[in-house]
Nucleic acid binder design. Structure first.
Lengths: 179, 179
DNA sequence: GCGAAAGTTCAAGAGGTTTTGAACACCTAA
DNA sequence: TTAGGTGTTCAAAACCTCTTGAACTTTCGC
């Protein structure tokens, strides 16, 4: 097994990531993508986390082979989500970024936000549908089926809330998990 | 509020969906999309569910404004996931489709499959990363951080399994929920 | 304040996924 | 067996999201 991530040709100053860092960042990228975030959000956070030492945009750009613009946008998102903090480093005029530890909390929080909006909208639409159907000459069983769908939406929300609670509980039980 | 879903021009035989059906199918489409399926999977299933009466490809195609090919592929998926059944209808040579009721079960099942593959792969990669890091001159704390990520992946799996159980339990408690 | 470096923005492009529809295959009924 | 309706496939098109990089703005050190 090679010790360095593959890169053909010899473009930049050859600052490629060691294989193990590539594996870690890609792993987190895959996980975060599963949850509907962007792969590179995960890669950036993961690199900051394993390195411990705050990194600047230039370093992130080179190590993860991202563009200037991409790094700027990604760290902005991560800051807003409070999983990355912007810090000054003595002797440098550039901002540096360091990983916060509440990554799991962020995933569940954002997930719950998205899900909340969705369920609110869907419930509203199903209510409207039910009312409209009632004013048309729709039989009782059909109305019943629409109602059942609303129940189902409610159950989905409940189940997802349980997921969020479980995730947060698990993490807090393993307090200092990532620290 | 209009009683019919909007459609400009006058293309097909004007077999547009009543507004309430459009609301229902779109609602289910949105939900299923949230879970990483295709919008039209949800729309097709939802229409079959509210209509109760089995429909053929042609009807699905016209009512939901899908192409012939799309309908073919979508019902194939839904059949494989066991949420739609193919039936014969007397007096017609075309296949008809009817909705099965275990929609929620299907979502959680597919979700758990996807998640299972993901976590297996990620855990494997993190293990490799740890081993590689160990053979390099990586300090103990860094190794510890990689280990903690593996733990985190495990917790995520646990939490998702709880979600799946909760969802299935909720539905079974409300047995005949959709029936 | 000035020049240089760092950071941001966004239109255009790349990349990936879904949908289309024409060609082909399959069935059914006669 | 055949004709016509039905069903499937898949390359191309449409669509949508993410990334790039040049232009621009802000910040820093002096």
């Amino acid at each position: 097994m090679k010790g360095y991530a593959y890169r053909s040709g010899e473009g930049e100053p050859s600052l490629q990531l060691p294989m193990w860092e590539a594996l870690v960042t890609d792993a987190v990228g895959d996980v975060i993508e599963f949850w509907g975030f962007k792969r590179n959000h995960g890669r950036v956070w993961a690199l900051l986390y394993v390195r411990e030492e705050p990194m600047n945009s230039k370093e992130l750009q080179e190590d993860l082979e991202l563009s200037k613009g991409a790094v700027s946008m990604i760290v902005r998102d991560l800051e807003q989500w409070k999983v990355v903090q912007r810090v000054r480093k003595p002797g440098s005029s550039a901002w540096h970024f360091e990983a916060e530890l509440d990554f799991m909390e962020m995933i569940t929080r954002v997930l719950q936000e998205r899900e909340g909006e969705l369920i609110a909208r869907v419930s509203e639409d199903l209510k409207d549908a039910e009312n409209l159907a009632r004013t048309s000459d729709v039989d009782e069983e059909t109305l019943e089926r629409i109602k059942r769908m609303r129940t189902l939406a409610g159950l989905m929300k409940q189940a997802l809330d349980v997921f969020v609670k479980t995730a947060q509980l698990d993490v807090s039980q393993t307090r200092d998990l990532l620290g």
